[in-house]
């Protein structure tokens, strides 16, 4: 029983740490300029990312952007839509209005939960 309780406390502590991490990212995103957000998104490109594991979290970042700064998405989309679609087309599509609509439909906040469900990776 003690082991179960300890495991559950650890889980709760991790949840709290994760919430604080998400709050910190959201706050940093809100304060960032468009130029900084573009640079952040660019860091997920295969040739620039630190590892496939880092690159794979782009989906999660874009979800966070749609949730946090939806009003700035058209300008971010415009930046990537102008680039070579072979390299940047997928990212432009992730920032396009249709992706935002889909994200809105997918958002799920269970009753009693502090915040919408978070996908980790």
């Amino acid at each position: 029983m003690d082991r179960l309780i300890a495991a559950w406390r650890l889980r709760n502590a991790c949840a709290m740490a994760l919430e604080q991490a998400i709050d910190a990212v959201e706050s940093a995103v809100c304060e960032a300029s468009d130029q900084e957000l573009v640079a952040l998104i660019e860091s997920f490109a295969p040739a620039r990312s630190s590892s496939p594991e880092y690159a794979a979290t782009l989906d999660r970042l874009v979800e966070l952007l749609w949730d946090t700064v939806p009003g700035r998405m058209p300008s971010l989309h415009a930046v990537f839509a102008e680039r070579n679609p072979r390299q940047w087309g997928a990212i432009a599509n992730m920032l396009a209005p249709a992706a935002g609509t889909r994200r809105e439909q997918q958002r799920f906040q269970p009753p009693g939960a502090r915040r919408p469900a978070v996908v980790l990776r």
């Binding site: 496939p52 594991e53 997928a90 599509n93």
Partner: peptide, 13 residues
């Protein structure tokens, strides 16, 4: 699988 993970998942696909 890891190598594929380098590339963004295109919602158009």
């Amino acid at each position: 699988i890891r190598a594929n993970r380098q590339f963004p998942q295109d919602p158009a696909m």
